[in-house]
Structure formats: structure tokens, C-alpha cells
């Protein structure tokens, strides 16, 4: 038998204390490199009183298990427009020893409507779960995470550019692949001597490689304004004569799948007409002419303006006001 002997004879009585090894993290398996030491003690009487003897101590070292998981932290597809988009992933070292992981993004996933360009991969350095440019560390190629302790997880951002050619509603998937730096393979594959403290490393059930998919859906929003006018003349007809009242209606239609913010619809009072005070209305509800008290303001000199704020598509809102022909 291949024996490389460790004989540990110690004063009897201290044996129990010496068997206690540094308390490893048991959360998800003992740490790689942990020494498992076993010693038996016997007491007996051989005719001349009680005696105590101790066995040799057998020592085995726990080898390093290579395992990793990746999860998308985005709740479903993230909405995006042409330009930068950020996908969020979590990489967890589910092995039992410190291990570095290489990260590889894949934008060419079957079924993608379009392909994004990966700008960079960043680590959530400040741990706030949100990509902070200039704060979160950008990984340089080859993109490898610093070694993660056993059971340690880190949030990773994949920053991509959505091309200008996309159309509303298009989807694309981006995969993030994490692979143990020591190596990957079939469960049970071993890397002799490459584990903790010169022990072996063995590929765990994950194959030491994991992939998660993040999704991007293009949300393009357009706003169409349609203006119409109706006239009532002083004689009950529809002629444009002095004294006729013209009602202008502006329909703002927000279409697509995203939202617009700070949407303000404004119009001027045409020359030769006078604004009818108190006639401004949004969806049939009167607005005051004064500024600041509600969404609308109106005056003969400055025209009308209605602040619709943030509007999610699809939505249609109707603004109306009256003028008299001078």
C-alpha cells in the first residue's frame, strides 16, 4: 500500500482537542483543503489496571469541487431603445474552494430578432445592484472575475449597444457564460494537483460551467399629433366670418410599446383670431388659463400649452380650445 505516513502520537488526553479542525464553512459543503483527521482511542484492562492507547491518525484532505451558477437578475425582458442597455446577472461559486471564473457573453442566440454589440462587462463593485459607470469595475479581456470564495456570489453587468436599425417590439437574447478558470468538463473530470493547497480539482454537477440568458425588448414610442377645426358662425352656420367661434382639437396619439416623458403639446393662437378665455380642455375636462395650477395654460399672446407629463403607449389624449375670428 502506498503509505506516506503520518503518525501522530500525542499525550493521551489531548487527542480529542487535536481532532478538532478549524471550523470550515458547512453551508454548502466543507471547504476544499479541509483536513479530515480521525483517531480512535481505546481503554481496557489487561489485568494490571485500566490503560489507554490511541490509534494512528488517518488524514484525508477534501479536494476542490468546481461548480458555478449564473442567473439573470432582470425581471423578464428589459425595455430598451437604440443605444446603451444593461443586463444584470449573478455569478455564484457553488464549489467548495476559491475559484476564478471567465465570463463570455454570447449575443448570437438562435431566434434573436437583432444582435446587440457587447461594449463591456462590469462587476458591481459597490454592491448596489445597479450599474454605475465610472464606479463599477470594467473587466478587461479576457474577462475574468477575481476568485470568488466558496458560496460567494457577485453581480455582473453586461453593457450592450442596441443598433439603430431595430423596430418596436423586437427581441434579442444575450447569454452570459461563466466557466471555472481551473477548467470545465463532464462531472467527475479531474485536474490533478490544481485544487486548493495542491489537492485535486474535480468537476462538479454543473460541469464547472453555467449559462444564463438575459432578454432585451425594443420599446420604441412615437407621438402623432392631429389637429382639426370646427366653426360655428354667429348665424348658426359654419362660415368663417368675424365673430365665428373656431374650436381647435389636437389629438395626441402615443403609439408603440414604450413611454414618453415630458410630453408637452403647444399651439399658437392664429393671427386674426382671439383666444376664448377659459376654453382650454383636456379630454373634455376644462383647464384653467393660468400657469402652474394644472397641466394647462393659455393666453392670446403665448398660445396654449398642455403638459401631459409621462405617457405610456398606447394612449390617446385630446386637447381642445376655442378662438373667435376678429
Amino acid at each position: 500500500m502506498n503509505t506516506h505516513t503520518i503518525i501522530r502520537h500525542l499525550a493521551i488526553g489531548s487527542a480529542v482537542a487535536l481532532c478538532a479542525i478549524a471550523s470550515p464553512a458547512f453551508a454548502d459543503g466543507v471547504d476544499a483543503g479541509t483536513l479530515i483527521e480521525n483517531t480512535a482511542t481505546a481503554t481496557f484492562d489487561a489485568g494490571d489496571g485500566p490503560q489507554t492507547i490511541e490509534s494512528n491518525t488517518v488524514v484525508v484532505r477534501v479536494d476542490e469541487l468546481l461548480d458555478v451558477t449564473v442567473t439573470s437578475l432582470d425581471a423578464g425582458a428589459i425595455g430598451a431603445t437604440p443605444g446603451e442597455a444593461v443586463l444584470t446577472f449573478e455569478v455564484t461559486n457553488t464549489g467548495n474552494g476559491p475559484e476564478a471564473f471567465t465570463l463570455t457573453p454570447n449575443t448570437a442566440v438562435a431566434g434573436n430578432d437583432f444582435e446587440v454589440l457587447v461594449e463591456s462587462i462590469a462587476v458591481d463593485t459597490n454592491g448596489n445592484g445597479v450599474y454605475d459607470p465610472g464606479v463599477d469595475e470594467i473587466l478587461t479581456a479576457p474577462q475574468a472575475l477575481e476568485p470568488l470564495a466558496a458560496d460567494e456570489a457577485v453581480t455582473v453587468f453586461v453593457i450592450v449597444t442596441v443598433p439603430d436599425s431595430v423596430t418596436d417590439g423586437q427581441q434579442t437574447n444575450v447569454e452570459l457564460i461563466a466557466e471555472a478558470a481551473t477548467g470545465t468538463g463532464a462531472p467527475g473530470d479531474t485536474f490533478a494537483g490544481q485544487g486548493v493547497d495542491g489537492g485535486d480539482a474535480i468537476v462538479g454537477t454543473t460541469g464547472a460551467s453555467a449559462t444564463a440568458t438575459g432578454a432585451i425588448q425594443v420599446g420604441l414610442t412615437s407621438v402623432d399629433l392631429t389637429k382639426s377645426a370646427s366653426i360655428v358662425d354667429p348665424f348658426g352656420g359654419e362660415s368663417a366670418v368675424p365673430g365665428s367661434i373656431v374650436t381647435f382639437t389636437i389629438v395626441a396619439e402615443v403609439s408603440g410599446s414604450g413611454s414618453v416623458s415630458d410630453l408637452v403639446v403647444a399651439d399658437i393662437i392664429p393671427d386674426g383670431t382671439t383666444y376664448v378665455t377659459g376654453s382650454l380642455a383636456l379630454d373634455g375636462n376644462p383647464l384653467t388659463d393660468a400657469a402652474g395650477d394644472d397641466a394647462g395654460e393659455a393666453s392670446d399672446a403665448d398660445g396654449i400649452a398642455v403638459d401631459l407629463g409621462s405617457v405610456s403607449a398606447p394612449a390617446t389624449q385630446s386637447i381642445s380650445f376655442n378662438v373667435t375670428i376678429d
Binding site: N2, T3, H4, I6, L35, V58, V59, V60, R61, G199
Partner: peptide, 8 residues
């Protein structure tokens, strides 16, 4: 203290 070496 190699794991490979059982100590007999």
C-alpha cells in the same frame, strides 16, 4: 498530508 495517502 496528501489525500492520496491513507495512513496505515
Amino acid at each position: 498530508v496528501l489525500a492520496q495517502e491513507d495512513t496505515l
